[in-house]
Nucleic acid binder design. Structure first.
Lengths: 216, 216, 216, 216
DNA sequence: GATGAATGAGTCTTCATTCAT
DNA sequence: AATGAATGAAGACTCATTCAT
């Protein structure tokens, strides 16, 4: 996959860059089209037309239509992963206040992602799952990853004593993932202004933390 | 649509019943097929074959394929509505204990619905949304309805004083819907035994109620 | 494959007959088209057009284009087999004269087949072998079958003593098959009148029999 | 087409040689690919890849794909012609023994050709004929040429008196060509060791000569 | 009302060929 | 002369829908 740039001539390097660029543009165009009219309603010709390119060209970069969605989803996966980790790695919060702050950071990051581009939610939650079992599995695995991160974070909080020790961590992690999904979905119908969204996040996180914080 | 049974002969009535029966069977078969292989991968012939009937017959009962999904979704809507209301109409809980009990009843009903037939979650969440904007809108409206019921229930609880009055009711309702979605989705990957599911519900509801119950 | 006609209604039987008829017509049309312009140059639409039928209809009868050639070749195989056996089963000749007569009968039957319809040679020898390895194998197997029949006939002749016992039977059988192929191929270029063909057969069979007949 | 070498500088000459070389290599590569997967399954890119050259380059040497096969076939034609004539020109045999020896030489040469490279038979007999009528005609013309040579040889033998004068020379020539084809085809299925092939040739030639030699 | 064969529009995909660099 | 990305025409195949029986 990685290309030994050292062994390439200048011309080759330039060509490789242009190829990578077009690949990326195809993924972009496909993503846009999938979000706009759906995977099945999108034809390869549609994607090509967005780039003023011929259908054949698309096939110079991707094996087939299925291959294109795979790359679209990979990009979304990477974006989501970036939002979920970053400086928010689980286990770094030492106090309830820090935990709350960290949770808010993650919520804000995820929200920014889905809010900045509501197409993400549309494609990921509503289009891609209908393609086939493998694709569905990938999406479910993404939910699982989010669950995993929550789980670790909560486990750590319980160990450090600022979260109740009688709470069911698995169930709580599910609740957290559910909130994320729910927020994404609701945003598709009714785009809320950024300020409301901040308030919403604080409220939701507040409810959660109240529910799991150690008493006293 | 409604049939004036009074003016029908016995033979006519019998025929009308059989027709209604076949209509229902077609919806069933379509649902099963959509869940098994997806909406787009399902052909009219597949549905017909399940009923040992010809494709043409299907068109005697439904205008087109799109019309069939519409009815499939209507049935799922009705089932969900039944689970959400019934004797669980919002505003009937008078104490926190009653509220908790009611919430558990709803959670159990919804869970029973999705657990009894995981195909429901699959079709509703993963297949149907990819069909077109109208269909997606219907699903979002179902989420909205669930949100509405939660919202009313919470509002009532706050008014009666057993829920904190500083809680953001809208956000909390979103959390509740999110939990439902999350639970449904996770069950698709990993079927949990009924006992575990009961424990899970209690834990999740516990977290929620702790988070919103009036202090003291 | 065989259909239990007894369990069919009259209407079903009629429909089955019509289906079988159309299947056969498609094979005919495909054969004609393959012979005229070749397998690769033939489109499904071409075949359909010959029958004033839509392309989709062709696919109601055959899985794909490859499936159609398979049936075309099966039909040719059956025709060839019929020409090679019939009352010409190996081992029935008791004297050299009978052997010569039998050989002539077979030669005449094969010639009639290829002469009656030069498309047979064209499709079998020149078109079908270019499709894929499996198809080529089928054609080679047909040559093998012809070889086998010759071989048995010659073996029997040697055993009965009217053929030279020092002759290489395998090689001779190859020669016989070669003559058949050669005659078929040459006919493609230059259609000879029936009388000439009869003379040709007698000459060729004469050369062969002279070469292998027991001396004295 | 022909190049006036006299007016070329050394550099020009070298370049012309390299061009001729690459042309030849393209023909080689195409031949190899056609034999391996067939004419239609071979893409220009496949041929180019074999030579570590770009598809565009191929078009600097040949007008189109069809043009390439034409040259492939020309090369095969030349090889076959070389095997059939050489010191085996018809009319040089003076006695039956010489005739037999000459026939064996030709048979051995042809066999060597097809045995050394079974791809020849595959391409010539099984691939190339399916391309178009012109190509088929070329192959038939090759058979004709072989027939012609046999015919002349036999005519000469009859004139000199060591072959029967009542034999049908045309039919006999057909038999000879048929034997060549048959041997080539059979070798495609079952590669025989060189020793067996020698024996086979002797047997087949023996049968033939016995059949046509003058008696007494 | 049931049938199921016929329809043909609609897409993906391939690949020979071109041409700007 | 070599390159290789772009092209777009062409064709196999699917399947929702129709309609004569």
């Amino acid at each position: 996959m990685s290309i030994d740039a050292g062994s390439m001539t200048r011309a080759e390097r330039k060509r490789a860059e242009q190829a990578a660029q077009l690949r990326a543009e195809i993924v972009d165009a496909a993503f846009a089209e999938f979000a706009a009219v759906g995977y099945h309603a999108t034809t390869i010709a549609d994607i090509a037309r967005r780039l003023s390119v011929s259908p054949g060209t698309v096939y110079n970069y991707f094996k087939n239509k299925r291959d294109i969605v795979d790359h679209v989803v990979s990009r979304l996966e990477a974006q989501l992963r970036a939002a979920l980790v970053g400086d928010n790695a689980p286990g770094t919060a030492r106090t309830l206040a820090e935990f709350r702050a960290q949770t808010m950071r993650i919520a804000t990051a995820v929200d920014a992602l889905f809010y900045a581009d509501e197409r993400m939610a549309r494609v990921l939650l509503f289009e891609v799952t209908a393609i086939d079992a493998t694709m569905t599995e990938r999406v479910l695995a993404m939910f699982d990853a989010a669950h995993q991160i929550s789980f670790e974070s909560l486990t750590d909080g319980a160990r450090r004593g600022f979260l109740r020790d009688d709470v069911d961590i698995g169930a709580t992690a599910d609740v957290i993932v559910g909130v994320m999904i729910s927020a994404s979905v609701r945003n598709l119908r009714n785009s809320y202004p950024a300020a409301d969204r901040q308030a919403w996040r604080e409220a939701a996180v507040g409810v959660l933390i109240e529910g799991i914080a150690a008493r006293g």
